[in-house]
Nucleic acid binder design. Structure first.
Lengths: 197, 197
DNA sequence: TAAAAATTAGGACAAGCATCCTAATAAGTC
DNA sequence: GACTTATTAGGATGCTTGTCCTAATTTTTA
């Protein structure tokens, strides 16, 4: 097998395991077993666990950029784009209920570890924030675009957190409805801070 | 030293370390060093790491119950009580920015571990949900009381998550203002689902 | 096809881990 | 003050971890 394929398989397996089991809890052996290669082979591609983490973060960044670019193309209305984001919590509901938000949980874990790559992991979160901010900007919000972006991003983290804790589908659906209503409301009103969240 | 004191010190140190470093990442040695006792002494009080975890969860449950009871006493208006809850994200801001929400991050970690005590940890989250639900119930909300409770609880998790990721004080303050406004609004209107979140 | 490079396998290592054990000491009891 | 119990200390154990190394094998190159 070509080295690049092996490397890619390792990163994909690590990505999955870091998500489902966490970074600390996932061992070299776990990843090697998932890809069905020897530890020696593994070491050829990644010298340290931190190197794998960086590769996983790079992949996640790239994946999310691709996703956002797709939304930019397929939906030409900013409101519809933001709704694409909102609906992630429904589209990925089962995984979120089991493992939480991949971005949020990794951010939280690396923060507790005070891990060097903590900052890079936060960039994934920032990627969404900046994209959302651009959408709200396109809707005519100036200074408030960032606050709205953070509001929607924080909303998604909160929903993911409770979805994981309680596994309540009705709650998720209701929250999606509420924030969607809010979005339509402020999109029409425009350029003002909503009186309620 | 009395055994109970030692035990209590162990649980307190474990509580802190589980919060600041995570459950998996915290070792017996870490806790023993924090309390300044030998591992042997440690083993006398707790046979397994899971036993310590259970003790920490018990303590957290008791602590939160005490806190909520205090709010029940000191504020006799349900709105003011809910605001007490909302303001946690400001009162504990520095710790939250460093380590996230103690309840949310433990829930997330134990879920990924698929840990036996996962369910018990979720009870802390449920404690807040039930308390909030009671407050909304006292405001005249029937069926919607639970949804409002989940809404506020999820809000707090989202704010904590972003506060940890970005360390943005302004964002936290704005969110507190928004949800407080929302609370006052629905408290006056009463018995209806808010059109916006 | 021969030589060189890339890739893989799997054993070795020290460190850290949770856990267990025995012996010493302190506290309590009669 | 003797004896029993509660508490503490610290070493031993077996396992897992990340990391490293060397030898085999495959792939590429000339």
């Amino acid at each position: 097998m070509a080295a690049i394929d092996t490397r890619q398989q390792i990163v994909e397996a690590a990505d999955d395991l870091f998500y489902s089991a966490g970074f600390v809890q996932t061992s070299f052996a776990d990843i090697a077993k998932a890809v069905n290669i020897s530890r020696g082979n593994f070491y050829y591609h990644f010298k340290t666990k931190d190197e794998i983490l960086d590769a996983v973060i790079d992949k996640r960044l790239a994946d999310r950029e691709t996703l956002l670019a797709k939304w930019d193309e397929t939906a030409d209305d900013p409101v519809q784009r933001i709704i694409c984001f909102i609906r992630i919590v429904i589209v990925n509901q089962s995984k979120i209920m089991a493992y939480g938000c991949p971005v949020g949980t990794m951010t939280a874990e690396l923060a507790k570890l005070n891990h060097p790559s903590r900052t890079r992991a936060n960039q994934i979160m920032a990627l969404f924030r900046n994209w959302l901010q651009r959408q709200f900007g396109a809707l005519g919000f100036g200074k408030d675009a960032e606050l709205h972006a953070l509001h929607v991003l924080g909303w998604s983290q909160g929903v993911a957190s409770l979805a994981q804790a309680f596994g309540d589908e009705v709650y998720v659906r209701r929250e999606v409805e509420q924030i969607t209503d809010w979005l339509h409301e402020i999109a029409v009103t425009g350029r003002r801070i909503p009186s309620s969240t």
